[in-house]
Design a protein around this nucleic acid. Structure first.
Lengths: 185, 185
DNA sequence: GTAGTAAGTGGACACGGCGTCCGCTTATCC
DNA sequence: GGATAAGCGGACGCCGTGTCCACTTACTAC
């Protein structure tokens, strides 16, 4: 007989909204749990009850965006969804991920805290997806390649390409398209 | 009229030796600046005078190993050094980096602190090397690919492949060999 | 409605790491 | 052997973390 209590639900929404704004404003690295609690108008204890750290909050925020992409991967139109050749699907996946990183980089960076990236459900989903594409393309040892194939999507790498290297998202996407074809050759 | 003072040189050596041991023992994440200072028998102030944080110490330790590899890349035997086709040289570079990561992963992880990886001189060197190989192979937009090509060498990725995924270094190397050929196709 | 209760709340607290500052020491130069 | 400047080190204050517990509030059964 669960059912989240009304005040708890309200506070959860407040926390997420406040965190989203703070992350966007200052970058996740410069936001403390205290900041979030204060901005959301709740106490520290309340915050920690649900989210053990910043990463958990960023992850919760990313979740909905990721779910939308995941649905497109499973049942959407080709080339993102099923039906296209693996090289095209991989390139489309890369493009979609770059788009996601671009629009939510402040959250992605926040989720990186503690190197917990690999432990997230989303990473597992992407991994399974890319692995399946590699298998379909006849790769010799997909398990040895799949994490390497996902490595260029690490938020830090994207950030570096954009900010330090001055690349446009288009060039990043094009580069990954070439990589996708190389991987499924 | 510089010339490092004798006591300063002695302390530098002590700090590096102590840090190396602590990093190896517990992992860089679990070593504080205090620990290093105490183990080296110097005060906090002395430590901070030369190294602003853990990453700087780990970087200094990695430096000599990196220099050795860099020399081989420039003037060593093929396929690591000049003379072999770019695909082979890239694969050899990947293999050498995996070896380096394997032998010094405790340092590599330590150097990662603060996402300063891209700012190091070593990263710049590798980047230039790989970029040159991509150019030689006739890649369309080497600048868009080079960071992606280096991304699988991030210490966290390697650690994940080894510890979470249970891959041997050989399989990782083989996977990267396939990637090298895909990138220079 | 009202009483019971379990979940939710929030702020005070202790802990630990960080980085700085400044008085003392020691190597080096003349 | 005296002057000087570099090197040294530990005490200190700051800040973020995570926990704990006494209080409050929403829900449930009668």
């Amino acid at each position: 007989m669960p059912g989240e209590r009304a005040d708890a639900a309200r506070n959860r929404a407040r926390v997420l909204a406040a965190a989203d704004e703070l992350f966007a404003d200052r970058g996740a690295r410069n936001v403390t749990m205290d900041d979030i609690a204060r901005a959301a108008g709740v106490g520290r204890g309340t915050l920690y009850r649900r989210y053990p750290d910043r990463a958990a909050i960023a992850l919760a925020l990313l979740d909905e965006h990721e779910r939308a992409l995941q649905e497109k991967l499973i049942g959407g139109e080709p080339p993102l969804g099923p039906g296209a050749p693996p090289a095209e699907r991989l390139a489309a996946f890369y493009a979609a991920m770059v788009d996601l990183l671009d629009r939510h980089s402040h959250l992605a960076l926040g989720a990186e805290v503690g190197h917990s990236r690999f432990a997230t459900g989303a990473y597992g989903f992407w991994r399974a997806h890319v692995r399946a594409l590699l298998v379909e393309a006849g790769t010799a040892d997909p398990d040895a390649l799949v994490d390497a194939a996902l490595a260029p999507l690490a938020p830090e790498v994207f950030k570096h390409q954009r900010e330090e290297r001055g690349l446009t998202t288009e060039r990043v996407t094009e580069g990954l398209r070439a990589l996708a074809h190389g991987l499924t050759a």
